[in-house]
Design a binder for these strands. Structure first.
Length: 277
DNA sequence: CGCCAGGATACCC
DNA sequence: GGGTATCATGGC
């Protein structure tokens, strides 16, 4: 087990931020199970000597090789938040309430499938669909540290030959053929999702939006949460309304390479409290 | 019952 | 180029 002390990190805020669909609450509200990169992790948050302590169920080796990067612990969020315009009370409040959100570095393939599923349905239902998908097409493992059983996120090759009927049985509706097509593309060397981390983000956007069913919103989500391009800016129905408040393009113009982080603060805040007046 | 959900597409003019 | 009907499905 690893215990770390880190600022700008809140498990509940991250779990509810709408970027991760496989964080599940455990026995209390500050404990979650996570499955990512084929591994299982339990995260617990508590106060020790008035400091926030995060305990992780993994070994030090696994923390260094997987979870440190996944949890984006090497990015300085204080520095990013310092860019916030001090006269913008809405964004300041959004940050104050959600200053524990980090942009997780998740697998691009998983983000592609996740946000193809999540289009036009609510987050809760998307989570349920993804869990069913993992149980059916993922692999079952037992975590060495906790003894818990878990299902990995399916590989592209595990989904490429699934029939539309079987895919639809998961509850994905009309998205069935889009998911199968994405799996086929990613099963071949034509599209290497992991290699997209190393190419210009605009090139990645172009490749992504050329995939059937991937529009601007899904592409931005894959770019932000899967490629860690923090200048990515997913505009969903909530952010659309936030845009109306600020004026179109204002946030992107003002916060440039970090607008994706601001977007997460605003998304979380407006979902909880409603839109700016 | 109708409306909405981290939308995208095909088709219209 | 900009509008819009349509696409499944579950929760409210």
């Amino acid at each position: 087990m690893q215990t770390i002390f880190v600022e700008n990190f809140d498990v509940k805020q991250i779990a509810e931020s709408g970027q991760c669909f496989r964080w599940h609450q455990l026995e209390d509200e500050n404990a979650y199970s996570v499955v990512a990169f084929g591994k299982y992790l339990e995260i617990r948050q508590q106060k020790i000597d008035n400091k926030t302590a995060i305990s992780l169920s993994c070994t030090e080796e696994e923390f260094e090789s997987v979870w440190r990067k996944y949890l984006d612990l090497d990015t300085d969020y204080k520095k990013i938040a310092a860019l916030i315009d001090k006269t913008d009370s809405f964004l300041l409040n959004a940050y104050t309430e959600n200053d524990g959100i980090r942009i997780l570095q998740q697998q691009p393939w998983e983000m592609l499938i996740t946000f193809l599923i999540a289009q036009n349905i609510n987050i809760l239902r998307a989570q349920a669909i993804i869990e069913r998908m993992c149980e059916k097409y993922g692999r079952k493992f037992q975590d060495e540290n906790t003894g818990k059983w878990f299902y990995t996120f399916p590989e592209p090759t595990a989904m490429e030959s699934v029939s539309c009927t079987d895919m639809r049985a998961l509850g994905v509706g009309y998205r069935d053929s889009r998911l199968i097509n994405a799996a086929k593309i990613c099963s071949t060397p034509v599209v290497d999702m992991n290699a997209m981390r190393d190419i210009p983000s605009d090139t990645a956007r172009l490749i992504l939006t050329n995939i059937y069913g991937v529009g601007a919103k899904v592409a931005e989500c894959v770019s932000l949460f899967g490629l860690h391009n923090l200048e990515s800016y997913p505009v969903d129905t909530w952010v659309q309304k936030i845009e109306e408040h600020y004026g179109e393009g204002f946030l992107q113009h003002t916060y440039g390479e970090y607008v994706g982080v601001m977007q997460q603060y605003l998304f979380a805040y407006s979902r909880k409290h409603g839109l700016p007046v």
